[in-house]
Design a protein around this nucleic acid. Structure first.
Lengths: 162, 162
DNA sequence: CCAAATAGTTACATAACATAACTATTTGTG
DNA sequence: CACAAATAGTTATGTTATGTAACTATTTGG
């Protein structure tokens, strides 16, 4: 049997047995699917995952600062600037100067921002419900609590290091 | 009490209660931490997450094609080209033309590629062990199997749609 | 025989992310 | 009280990941 005959791997025999043991790999596989579907879900609202997350944080925490939001979103402060710029330009949020500390802004959602947020959150809920259809309620619950444990553990580790 | 006094949110009161219910949010939080640490872990090998994943797949599946690898990695084929170019240029892999189908290559790891892969896999294992230290064995096992269920479910859904 | 499909590529655009360096302002210490 | 250090936000820039259009070369199927 010549080696060229075996040169091509049949599709069914592609193995990810090494990678499958890595948490990062499993997270990325799942996250890829969810992220792609979320991009489609948010597109009608002219939102992306980062602008959506920022808006939700601001709606839930009126008066938070840009530094706090960057921390909460786990992104660098310079990268937040364009996100806030975009939400402000669309009149979904406002940057209010803080009288007691003129370096900082208090971020607040406008009425339009709150409304858009509500709709986008509902759409996101539906998108996740669709993706998880076929997984029973008990398993979903276990999934969410397991991920909560994981992300809390990792966040705590991160904070200890800084 | 004037509104300016309440303008600033105390750090301890930032709430992510809306976002915390989203699977995508939880996955992203965890994935952010793992990805940042993995970038540091792979840097001494001059690898990134994508080049590492590609190399592992090729080592485990000698002879696989670029199309198969793109599918396995869930990326678009044009984006695989620079990844394969880089691994080839470093002489970690080779692109062998397939005699029976001159459109395609059979990708194979070189000895140097296999060696680097082995070291990088060990380093990745250690990085994940470090990140998960403090989580007991039973919880880790549950975590991995839960994520396996999730990513299999989502991959199956994706394949059904295409 | 040839249209359709496939494998791989080039070119390009967008978005996410990291870092250096800056201005304006506040804080803390000697 | 003066001022160095720290903080909040910003500009500029580079790197990486990702998506899409259009292309060439080759194979497939009717």
């Amino acid at each position: 049997m010549s080696t060229t005959k075996l040169a091509v791997v049949p599709p069914s025999r592609i193995s990810d047995e090494t990678l499958r043991n890595f948490l990062g790999y499993q997270l990325k596989r799942s996250f890829n699917v969810i992220q792609a579907d979320l991009a489609k879900t948010l597109k009608p609202f002219d939102l992306r995952m980062l602008t959506f997350t920022a808006l939700v944080f601001i709606v839930d925490n009126p008066g938070m600062s840009q530094s706090q939001l960057a921390d909460a979103m786990d992104i660098e402060r310079p990268n937040l600037v364009v996100i806030i710029d975009e939400l402000e330009q669309r009149e979904l949020i406002v940057r209010d100067r803080v009288k007691t500390d003129r370096r900082m802004y208090a971020l607040k959602a406008t009425l339009a921002g709150k409304r858009l947020c509500k709709k986008a959150v509902a759409a996101d809920k539906a998108h996740e419900a669709r993706l998880l259809a076929g997984i029973d309620k008990e398993t979903r619950k276990n999934l969410m609590s397991t991920l909560e444990v994981l992300s809390s553990h990792l966040q705590n580790r991160n904070e200890d290091l800084t």
